[in-house]
Design a protein around this nucleic acid. Structure first.
Lengths: 132, 132
DNA sequence: TTGATTGCAAAGAATTTGCACTGGG
DNA sequence: CCCAGTGCAAATTCTTTGCAATCAA
């Protein structure tokens, strides 16, 4: 996850893009959160730019965009392997998990329904250990 | 799914509410679609009312609201048993399915993570049999 | 140099809310 | 009769876009 990835995506390596990529290392963030983090770091990057860069990164396969149902999108780096999420409705924390049994069942169900799966998402919503 | 359910929810039985409940029998619909269907039926119900009624129905447990990731919410009647969805990104069709193996694994994962699950959703996105 | 990138402000899309009017019980 | 319910328009929230200035290659 560095300037090379940006170049490979056919994008110029700019300060906003580098910083956003770096901030995304922190985990699951909304555009607004990234924008504020940038401001906190002293980078005066516009919110529109954050959205544009995130969209470009998403199209390039560098980041994944999620809709956890609270109205705003959440972004995370595409770290390769697919995984699902546990989302805390109190503190907003997002935990990841992978379950091969579920993955297999999903593929099986899609197959049975003659459905060509391009994507899938599983969200477990509730209270995390700290917020119970 | 009739006027009794509306009453039990502590709501008055009005024409807009009855009609909306009836239209929801059709399946998975957006607020806009319900609004247009109402108009097509000759009921001049405002879009704001559609949203308000849907929210009330959701709070009353009569309907379930989904976010399939395309920006707008989709509503369906709460027919009791939990189920997951296959969503066609071409024609918009929504198929339902239930898989006990997946349900069990989810509960197990939440338990392992010491996570108090209040809700969960699994979406399989892709092309349905007709749109492949 | 020069087209890609950015910032800002304005535009959009989905949903919510304020308020005066209407209607169900 | 009386307050819940509704319509309409304005307000919100999140995200996208137009355009002139700016910057990476």
């Amino acid at each position: 996850m560095n300037s090379t990835d940006i170049k490979n995506a056919g994008l110029k390596v700019t300060t906003p893009r580098m910083r956003i990529l770096q901030i995304l290392q922190e985990g699951h963030l909304t555009a607004e959160e990234i924008y504020k983090e940038l401001a906190a770091q002293g980078s005066e990057v516009g919110l529109a730019t954050v959205y544009r860069v995130l969209t470009q990164f998403e199209n390039a396969g560098l980041v994944i965009k999620h809709n956890f149902g609270d109205g705003r999108a959440v972004y995370e780096l595409a770290k390769g392997e697919h995984h699902d999420h546990l989302v805390c409705i109190k503190c907003g924390k997002v935990e990841e998990f992978i379950d091969d049994v579920i993955e297999q069942r999903q593929a099986q169900i899609a197959k049975e329904k003659n459905f060509k799966m391009t994507d899938h998402s599983l969200h477990i919503i509730g209270f995390c250990a700290s917020c119970s």
